[in-house]
Design a protein around this nucleic acid. Structure first.
Length: 209
DNA sequence: CGAATGATATACT
DNA sequence: GTATATCATTCGA
């Protein structure tokens, strides 16, 4: 298999996040590497599935109609921070806040492929072996990377949670788009094609094994 | 297929 | 302040 070109890992800068086109950011996040350093444990995962939430105009968004609460406050900050919230009382869902100040757009990270620190992911998920479900689904992904609601508002250009570009590219014919998951309550907005999936796992740099 | 599980938003007193 | 419905899901039967 063709390996991705080895590019020095480069942390995404604020200007990546601050674009107003949240759908473009969601697409661009595929193949990027989500990293956490928590409890002295470092984990890295290649993002394979994202969903865009288009702020005030999107009924599926927590910020629909400009709703502004203590929970959603981070979404109104300039792009480049985390928005994490608890869903169904169990799952911590991780979002990347995008766009400028007072434009509450965000991208939900739904799935990823393990790249580094797999042993920590397994421990956090109480599993003994890595399978396809280790980082599949936003709740599982967050649990494996140690992301919790207390990290909501965390600066993604810091050294706790951040995202790197490893030069991994998702081919156009690998990119699948469709309606978002679990947003039936949003009426017509549930039909928006705001979900992006890297159909086959992006090439993993050779050093992974 | 359905229960688990708790913070949050909203609508009350 | 208190009550209650809801939820960007997951796992096991």
């Amino acid at each position: 298999m063709r390996r991705a070109v080895r590019t020095p890992a480069k942390r995404l800068e604020p200007r990546f996040y601050r674009r107003n086109d949240v759908v473009a950011v969601a697409r661009d996040l595929l193949g990027k590497v989500l990293c956490t350093s928590l409890d002295g444990r470092m984990t890295q995962a290649i993002i394979t599935e994202t969903e865009a939430y288009a702020g005030v105009e999107d009924r599926a968004s927590h910020a629909y109609g400009g709703r502004r609460t203590q929970r959603t406050e981070p979404m109104y900050a300039p792009g480049g921070i985390a928005y994490v919230y608890l869903c169904y009382g169990i799952h911590h869902l991780f979002n990347v806040v995008t766009a400028g100040s007072d434009v509450p757009h965000a991208v939900l990270i739904r799935a990823a492929a393990p790249l580094a620190g797999v042993e920590h992911m397994l421990a956090r998920r109480s599993r003994s072996k890595a399978d396809k479900r280790l980082l599949a689904g936003p709740g599982s992904l967050s649990q494996a990377l140690g992301i919790r609601t207390e990290l909501s508002g965390t600066d993604l250009t810091g050294d706790v949670v951040w995202i790197e570009d490893h030069g991994i590219r998702v081919a156009a014919n690998d990119l699948v788009e469709g309606p978002r998951i679990g947003v039936d309550y949003a009426g017509d907005d549930a039909l928006r094609p705001y979900r992006f999936v890297a159909a086959t796992c992006p090439s993993v740099p050779a050093r992974a094994g």
